[in-house]
Nucleic acid binder design. Structure first.
Lengths: 195, 195
DNA sequence: TCAAACTGATAACATATGTTATCGTTCTAA
DNA sequence: TTAGAACGATAACATATGTTATCAGTTTGA
């Protein structure tokens, strides 16, 4: 078996029951893509045609605000999925761009493949639903976090939950993710140190 | 036919094709609930067991931040749905509360009813998916709006899109929805007037 | 290998936003 | 009918956050 599909098989198996026969057929449809640091796999304005599974590496998903500044929306770690779900589903131009922060190995699932899965896999519908729901819950948590806790608290939460991620992502990208300026984040971190 | 189901029939028909026979069977499962202004139909900490369709009136969906302050998350107008989708789907306690801002007539769809629809309606699965997706797109737009435009711009956008809603919702609730203080919103509105 | 780009800290200043309090008006419930 | 609650404007002040600039250390790519 293609080694590069071990991880995605593991992750999908956590969502649904899938047997060897199903996997053999279905997995042949995946495409593998290797991209270099800084390379983009989705550009604002174009249609997002795949769900990207990060086998190795790290992605940032970002969009542009009305001042022309890039805002980081999400970081996709190994063994997680990334896409612009709205562009993907509706087949409309995306507001987001997706860029590699490190050399990255991706497994691509096209729209057709996902829909084939609805028919060919016993739990294909369930897989589609669970992927959508997980994406939805991420959004929900993000909004609640914006409304209910301060930027510094959000930073500390991130630090507690994904301690290693902060070593891999430049701090000014984290600031953008928290929707504050890089100067301000630096101040918050360092003034907390000196308490 | 129950008059109070005309509106929801119209809305559901915009999502999927549903014939008279299907409707006759399915619509018998709806429950109607009349609630008074200020009454709550979901309390933080309890499980959200229904999707609420607003036939007449207005709901506010809100949660509590870590200072104990209520934050308005969404307002549900006539002919739209409201729920805590995560609580509803996962059968877990909700972070949200839902309260009527006016005397309101609701049509309730239980979890069981939605799932029955998956089997009994030809396009039941599609209905479930479209409802979920619409909820998702609302979240997505909300996040992008928070990241990309200023509070005053968000206010003006709301005013353009739902001009009548501002007459029905107290201004300090709008401020909370925009995640700014009521004093600040008042300042923004009035300082713009004097330009 | 080296110049340029990137990164994060910091200072100084400007702007945005929050907090508290007051006041007049309007709404609401007994 | 009326007292109290709710509402929105406003002022004064406090705090949070943004902007610009500088600098030193690090990384990157030709």
């Amino acid at each position: 078996m293609n080694n590069q599909l071990n991880n995605i098989k593991e992750v999908i198996s956590n969502y649904i029951e899938i047997n060897d026969e199903e996997w053999a057929d279905y997995s042949s449809k995946f495409r593998i893509k290797e991209i270099k640091k800084k390379e983009r796999i989705l550009n604002e304005g174009s249609i997002c045609r795949d769900v990207f599974f990060v086998d190795r590496g790290l992605l940032r998903i970002y969009f542009t605000d009305n001042k022309g500044e890039e805002k980081n929306f999400h970081f996709a770690l190994e063994n997680t999925f990334a896409t612009d779900y709205e562009s993907f589903l509706k087949n409309i131009p995306s507001n987001y761009s997706i860029q590699a922060l490190e050399d990255t190995t991706l497994v691509l699932m096209s729209y057709e493949m996902l829909h084939d899965g609805y028919k060919e896999l016993r739990y294909g519908e369930k897989l589609g639903r669970l992927l959508a729901e997980e994406y939805f819950f991420m959004f929900s948590e993000k909004i609640q976090s914006i409304y209910t806790i301060s930027p510094l608290e959000r930073y500390n939460k991130l630090k507690t939950r994904f301690p290693k991620i902060l070593q891999r992502i430049p701090q000014h990208y984290i600031a953008s993710y928290l929707n504050i300026s890089s100067v301000h984040l630096s101040r918050l971190i360092n003034s907390e140190l000196h308490k």
